[in-house]
């Protein structure tokens, strides 16, 4: 790929998704876009770029943005954030939200759904304690194909083994041919939405927990600041923010404070404003007397 095409694609990606590609990422574009070019019957990436230059077509742009922004995901990825979810965040919210009995969780780069479903499976372990509570899990991603897979909840044998304890496989999955499908009960607890982090977050409502792992690394400093500032506005007082293990907020946001003795876990420290609790039209998960999730 020549440098003019590389720069052209970089400009489009930044404008459409905020994704920033440094000079050393040309291989990434080539490896991600070659399958797209083949799928769309172009002889090469160069031909695909030429067509994009000629038409400036949104459909072609979407294919490119989706291919470049899809993130690897697996159940209980990195384990620690999920341990923190269960042992730090939930106990804290059980206490601070006991009057409202409502928890809203955002998986901000849901990809193929494993993160959101992992959270749901943990919540199901606490069904007894969550009786009478409403829990919403919203999973958003820019990639429509990934979201379709997330909604179907169908995973390969390889995918259900990377990080997921066998107890969850036994409890929540069934075999469908060579694949494993997560139960309709767990699927019904998560609402997936196509969403671009560059857009306004107002339609999403407000959250108590935001998982935003390994996403901000793709944005430049100004974009990171902007996204975090807008996340802050959507966060309830004392809400938690979870970043990837290698990510930090130093110099980017001062209101999310590191939670002591944890890694990549932050908590918002600000005065509670008189804002309305942001319940949107999303699926509300309640813990009924039977102790199981329902929408």
């Amino acid at each position: 790929m020549n440098s003019a095409d590389f720069d052209y694609l970089r400009t489009i990606l930044k404008k459409e998704s905020g994704l920033v590609l440094t000079d050393d990422k040309q291989y990434l574009i080539e490896s991600r876009l070659l399958p797209v070019a083949k799928k769309l019957k172009f002889e090469s990436i160069e031909k695909l770029v030429a067509e994009l230059r000629r038409t400036n077509g949104n459909l072609l742009k979407n294919h490119i943005v989706e291919a470049m922004t899809i993130n690897e995901s697996f159940f209980f990825r990195d384990k620690t954030p999920f341990d923190n979810f269960e042992k730090v965040m939930l106990p804290s919210l059980f206490e601070s939200k006991r009057a409202q009995k409502q928890i809203r969780i955002w998986s901000a780069a849901a990809s193929t759904g494993q993160e959101a479903y992992s959270l749901s499976m943990i919540l199901e372990e606490h069904a007894e304690k969550l009786k009478g509570w409403t829990v919403q899990i919203i999973g958003t991603d820019l990639c429509s194909n990934a979201l379709e897979k997330a909604k179907a909840g169908l995973y390969s044998q390889f995918e259900v083994q990377r990080g997921m304890p066998v107890k969850y496989l036994m409890k929540h999955f069934s075999q469908v041919g060579s694949m494993w499908q997560i139960s309709s009960e767990i699927r019904s607890t998560v609402q997936f939405r196509h969403f671009n982090l560059l857009n306004s977050f107002n339609t999403l409502g407000h959250f108590d927990i935001i998982f935003c792992r390994n996403v901000l690394i793709y944005f430049d400093r100004d974009m990171k600041k902007d996204i975090l500032s807008r996340m802050e506005k959507q966060a309830h007082s004392n809400a938690f923010l979870i970043l990837g293990a290698s990510e930090t907020l130093i110099g980017i946001n001062e209101n999310f404070k590191t939670v002591a003795d944890t890694r990549s876990l932050y908590q918002l420290k600000k005065e509670e404003s008189a804002k309305t609790i942001g319940v949107t039209s999303g699926a509300a998960l309640t813990m009924p007397k039977t102790g199981t999730f329902r929408t």
């Binding site: 384990k79 390889f158 083994q161 990377r162």
Partner: peptide, 9 residues
């Protein structure tokens, strides 16, 4: 990766 994740588990 699978073996390591199970060892952690």
């Amino acid at each position: 990766e699978i073996i390591i994740s199970k060892l952690k588990e």
